[in-house]
Design a protein around this nucleic acid. Sequence first.
DNA 1: ACAAATTTTTAGATTTGTCTAAATTTAAAT
DNA 2: ATTTAAATTTAGACAAATCTAAAAATTTGT
Lengths: 218, 218
Amino acid sequence: MTRSEENYLKAIFHLGGSATASVATNAIAEEMETKPSSVTDMAKKLAEKGLVNYVKYQGVSLTEVGIQTALAIIRKHRLWEVFLVKKLDFSWDEVHEVAEQLEHIKSEKLIDKIDELLDYPKYDPHGDPIPTKNGEFQERDKQLLSELPIKSKGICVGVNDTSSTFLRFLDKHKIALGDAIEVVEKEDFDDSLFIKIGDRNLHISNQIATNLFVKKDG
Amino acid sequence: MTRSEENYLKAIFHLGGSATASVATNAIAEEMETKPSSVTDMAKKLAEKGLVNYVKYQGVSLTEVGIQTALAIIRKHRLWEVFLVKKLDFSWDEVHEVAEQLEHIKSEKLIDKIDELLDYPKYDPHGDPIPTKNGEFQERDKQLLSELPIKSKGICVGVNDTSSTFLRFLDKHKIALGDAIEVVEKEDFDDSLFIKIGDRNLHISNQIATNLFVKKDG
DNA sequence: ACAAATTTTTAGATTTGTCTAAATTTAAAT
DNA sequence: ATTTAAATTTAGACAAATCTAAAAATTTGT
């Protein structure tokens, strides 16, 4: 498995390319910041290796083996992110770039030991679930903060946008995973939200509310 | 800097290619398990970048920049080895392969944090010195066990051969870095040694004695 | 010092992953 | 149902890193 092949599998997975749903060449090219013709080449190569299903002009989908391979890479990426934050005091907006490199280190023992050192975390610093060694992973019960009805309460469990600008925005306004959030009022005009977080009242834009995941109370 | 370029610099450094001494094409090829013609190609490329001095048919030597770059890679390699042993319970014969991958991770912050986490170790698990962030490193005061005179005592401070077969041999016979060793007698016939280590008496071959470094007492 | 052996370099080919530009297929629109 | 637009693939090229085989330079041995 080359690094490039691994990155393609990861991209296809993130675009929802399960065994059933297939992903367009252009979409993969955009996700990977490469050209569609390069994607076509790689699609053939991965199909050759039995990692994807590829039919000309019909897009790409992952095979069962492809899914498991993608999950193994995502597992490594997310475990390294936890490691960087918990053990090396990286902030959550700094980890992605380094984890992109670390995820390609080939050593089963290494990642299992890191998992153990971290006491088998279930979620990464952005709230995304970490697949198990067997490739199982369950999407968390969550919804966008923007979808929460007025007066209801929730716990902040994840972010949709993981860009460092957004993450630093959250840090600045002291919004962190695990915080209790109550929707006080919605502004119809611009879909902004008045929320209560801890004992503070905040007014946040719709763009913020559509990038924060919460788990509804009760 | 590509991974391949980094590996060449490391190899040249290990072969003693300082600013003054130059290293033969064939020697580099052998060290890297590649062909001399490949070395010539890379020598040109590295010279182009100002990392080595290269004169046709005269071998390769590192420039000051090349030396500092090599030291940075060696620093990363050895720090990762310490991390694997101290934090993840790898044995010293398992770390090399993984460290060969980890040494190429590009993040100054990462390696500085690892250094901090390990409390700034001076030596790696095989007793080799770890260069500082500024590229300084002092070779330890050491000699081969085989060179120690009869009746003298020393502390085991390093290994010459780092192959896993040799390291596992040492584990099996409970010889570890830090152990006190006394040379009781030498056998002229085969240059084997009778040594006292702790309260045990051992008879070791010359091949073992020429691969163990000790620091002489007093 | 000169032939032989060794080392090193060159020339040309290969693989991987990428690109551009042109051709083809599929999808959309009138 | 055509035409137009968009997406996708092909063909050919390129850079990086490697290889083989042959040529050139250096070193060694007598």
